Structures are given as structure tokens and as C-alpha cells.
Amino acid sequence: MAKRKPTLNLAEMEKALGYDTHSLYHFAEPFKRFYSDLRPIAHSAYERTRREFEEMQKKIHSRQDGDFPEELVRELERTQVISHNRNRVVLTQTSLVGFYRFAVDLRYDFGLHVPLLFTEDEACRTLSVAKLQPCETRMVTSWFFKFPKEIRDEIYTFAVSDGKWCIEDVDVFDKFSLTRAIGDPSGFYFPLSKHLGILSVNKQMRQEALLLAYGLTTFHLDDMDDLLKLLIAVGKTGRDNIEAIYFPWESRSDLECKWEENPRLDDCSLTLPSLHAMECVQMLKQCKRLRSLRLYFERDLIEQIDPEVFKTNPSIAELRLIQIKKVEVWSLAHESLEHCSLVSWLREGIECSRTLGQA
């Protein structure tokens, strides 16, 4: 795996920043934190400083940041709590020096905790959307809403067609779409599709049609990092209504961490991912209407891994307990792996779980 090569050494970056690495990220918490792209904060002082330096360069060359109202920035001086049902987002300004000084804790009612670290701009985006979030959607006085709900739903089916969703620019999604979406745990404001004009008519129509739109959209992700980001971003509304997800069972962040820990390892891709795997399974379990799941595995991994290692992997064991109607397992080259015994074992477990759940 190729690594980005920095142009400056540690001392040069510290001089440009105006502070040294000893001021960065000394947490008292016993858990790791992640940036908005779900990469973990590195143990290496050099890597932490490089991230700060890159953020400084973006601030210098970008005109999109730094235009937040002063009153919004001042609000971040106090801990902010964004709630929806029993799900909470807590933003806290830490005493850290540098750009990344806002701890963001996502706490879900099903027990998942995602600890992040944001810049001031990212925290402002989160809080700005939180302020838009309505307590409830008020009924709109219109002839359309005088129709029975069943008729309105029929009309929505003509306006919302089957669609495919993917992250077109992962950097933009991480920096902007995800950080904004975190401010709305309900998922009401997530920009699902700019082509569905019906979602922009008014709040009540959006609330009603959004459920159908999620169900008719197939979500294609590049890896489980993107899956976790998506299922965070779409909020409860999305997780309750998504029906089809396709993604590879691998993680860019996990591969990078393994490579950094052991650069001499020949092929990190031939080991099962661990960094975000269990969190992804926890999130998938919240997709109550999920009926179609397509997983992509590296063919050599499936054919060469010790069957016992695969079957006893914690995230694989939990994945096997999810109740899903249709499960496909393909190679990264888009070839079916149904002939592999491990794939049959995985699918049988999920189908058995579905049968038991329906009993």
C-alpha cells in the first residue's frame, strides 16, 4: 500500500504551525478517537502533526470554511448536546492545542459509541444543522394532504423511482456531508438525492416520501468505513427504511493501521478487518427493513483463510445473526463466491436467523 509522502519534516511542520507535537491529543479517555474520515488518531507524533499541517494548508487555500456566524462559534465554547429520541450527539471543546480540538461523541440507544475529533469548522457544520432540526413536522394546509395517506403513498411511488446511491467524492462527503448529517440524528435533512424534487417541496411531503425513497435506493459503498459513515449520516430515518446495501468486507483505515504496525507484512488484505467491523454489524442490525445484502470479499482471503479463524471472528459471527432475506457474496472482481464452503456457511446462518425470527 502506497503511503502519502510528506514534503516537510517534523521540525519544519511544527515551525509552520507555531506549536509542537507535545501539545496535541493528550487524552485522559481510555478509548481511541477518530477523525471525520474514520481514520484513528495516530500514535505517531509525526502523523498527528502532518494531519494538523494538512488542515492548515486547506484553511489557507479554501474559501469554503471560516464563514460561520460568530454567535455559532461562541456556542461551541459550551458543551452542546443534540438529541433525537434516545440517541445523542455531544460536542465538547477540549483544552487541546491545534485545529482538531472538539470531541464529538455519538451515543446510540442500542449501545454503540463512536468517539470522533473535529476541527472548529466541522463542529460548526454539525451545530448549524442541529439548529435547523424541527421538533416535529407541522401539517401543511394543502389540497394534496387532504387525500388519505394511502393515496398519497401511491402518488409518491410514481414520483420516486428505483435509484443507486454512492459516495462520489469521499473527501467532500467526510468533510461536509457527514459532519453536517451528524447534527441531525433523525436523518430528516440528509441530502439523499438532488434528483428527487419531491423531497424539497415542503417538510411534510419530505417526511412522507423520504421513507419510500430510502426503500427504493440501493446503496453501493466502497468499504465498511463508508458503510459506517453512511449509516451514521442517514440517521434513524435512513436506518429504519434502507432495504438494499452492497459493500466490500474490508476497511481502508484497518489496512492502513495494519500496514503502519507491520510495514513488512506482505498482504494485509488477506486478513479480516477489525477496526470498524463490529460497529458496522451493530449498525446493520438497526436496518430493520434490510432485505438485500451483497458482500464483496477478496477471493484469495475466502479460499486461503483458516475456516476456524473465519468462523470464530467476532464480527463475522455477529453478522451471521442478522436476519436478511437475500444475501449474495461476490469477489472484488464481481464473481460469485457461492461455491465456497465458508460462503455457504455464512449465508445459511443468516437465512436460519431470518427463519427463526419469523417463527
Rank of each mutant, 00 (worst) to 15 (best):
G215W: 03
G215K: 11
L216A: 01
L216S: 04
L216Y: 01
L216W: 01
T217S: 12
T218G: 04
F219M: 04
F219Y: 09
H220M: 09
H220R: 11
L221D: 02
D222G: 13
D222Q: 07
D222E: 12
D222P: 02
D223K: 01
D223R: 00
D223G: 01
D223C: 10
D223F: 03
M224H: 02
M224Y: 01
M224S: 04
D225R: 05
D225S: 08
D225P: 00
D225A: 08
D226W: 00
D226G: 07
D226Q: 14
L227V: 14
L227R: 08
L227M: 11
L227D: 02
L227E: 09
L228Q: 06
L228R: 03
L228A: 09
L228M: 12
L228W: 08
K229M: 13
K229F: 06
L230M: 14
L230N: 03
L230I: 12
L230D: 05
L230F: 12
L230H: 03
L231G: 04
L231A: 07
L231E: 02
L231F: 06
L231R: 00
I232M: 11
I232N: 01
I232A: 06
I232F: 02
I232P: 03
A233L: 06
A233I: 06
A233D: 05
V234K: 02
V234F: 00
V234G: 00
G235N: 06
G235D: 03
K236P: 04
K236D: 11
K236A: 11
K236C: 12
T237P: 00
T237C: 09
G238I: 01
G238S: 01
R239W: 05
R239H: 07
R239C: 10
R239F: 05
R239N: 10
D240K: 13
D240W: 11
N241I: 06
I242F: 04
I242R: 02
E243C: 15
A244M: 09
A244L: 08
A244P: 06
A244V: 09
A244T: 12
A244F: 05
Y246P: 04
F247S: 03
P248E: 05
W249D: 13
W249T: 09
W249N: 10
E250F: 00
E250N: 13
E250Y: 07
E250V: 08
S251I: 07
S251K: 03
R252Q: 12
R252W: 06
R252I: 09
R252D: 12
S253A: 15
S253C: 11
S253M: 05
D254S: 09
D254L: 05
D254G: 04
D254T: 02
D254P: 03
L255Q: 14
L255M: 15
L255G: 06
L255E: 15
L255R: 15
E256N: 04
E256C: 08
C257G: 08
C257T: 15
C257S: 15
K258H: 08
K258V: 06
K258W: 03
K258Q: 12
K258S: 12
W259C: 10
W259A: 13
W259I: 10
E261K: 15
E261Q: 15
E261G: 13
N262H: 12
P263G: 06
P263E: 02
R264K: 15
R264S: 15
R264G: 12
L265F: 13
